[in-house]
Amino acid sequence: MQANPDGGKHRTKQPTNSMTTGAADAGRSPLPDPPYWQGAAVVGLYRLGFLVLLILAWFWASQSVQRNIIPTPWATAEAAVKLIGEGRLPDALLSSLSVYFSGYLAAAICAIPIGLLMGAMRPVGKTLDVFVFALSATPRVAFIPLIIVLLGLGPQAKIFVVFLGAVMPIIINTYAGVLAADDELIEMARSVGAGKGRIFLRIVLPGALPFVVVGLRIGATIGLINTVVAELYTAVTGLGGLLAVYGNTFRMAEYFVIVLTLALIGVVVTEILRLIETRLGRWRQRS
């Protein structure tokens, strides 16, 4: 559909509007709507301020805790430059990301159809959901010895650990999304003569989409955790491997670099998914 012009219009029109009313006849509308980017800029500023505060706290902690357990921000930055220059950080990052994304992608590809199937065919869903819930409640670390026995210590085992962590929340949320389908809309669709396929494609699926994205977001977080867990418990590689090496040898500046890198991955991935979420839910917010 021609949905795009509307969204664009809405955004570009707002700032110009408030500018003209503000300059020409300020008396008519005493409080023009602030342009949308102003709010975003303010939030950005607050975030930046909080970041500065965090770094200050970090600096203070590094000075007051003894025996150099906490490195200074400056030492950490230096370590980061060194690690990047030596290629250790990029190598580890690449290795971790490939494990992470392989496992996560496989999880998404498997979980979404399973969740949809469970929701669309009630007997299948009712049969399986207890087992899915049971499996998702079991700490996945418990399976690692078994996975090592079956798949060894290599990348397959790591990818499988990530997969196992990410797959459950995606299945459960997709399933919940299909079950949450609006019965009134389904009845409306039936009344205009829509068949099962059209109802699923145009009513149930779009209705479930926000749930699926929530599942993907939770899955992404757990997947990242499991990436590090897998790297610590199987062959020690990637960011998890560096974490273990630097942690065990008390090279705290390098260790901090790895921790911050992991945090950054988490932020980037979840922000991307949140962006997708708000774009999909655009119709919801305008009123």
């Binding site: 559909m1 009845e187 409306m188 039936r190 009344s191 205009v192 829509a194 009513i203 119709w283 919801r284």
Partner: peptide, 28 residues
């Protein structure tokens, strides 16, 4: 048989929220 020969209008409107007005009519 439910279909285009019988039109049904509901109290709660039952518009598909993620479709525009135009797309809602086209859906039927």
């Amino acid at each position: 048989r439910p279909g285009p020969d019988i039109g049904l209008v509901f109290q709660s409107f039952r518009l598909i929220p993620w479709l525009t007005a135009q797309a809602n009519v086209e859906f039927a």
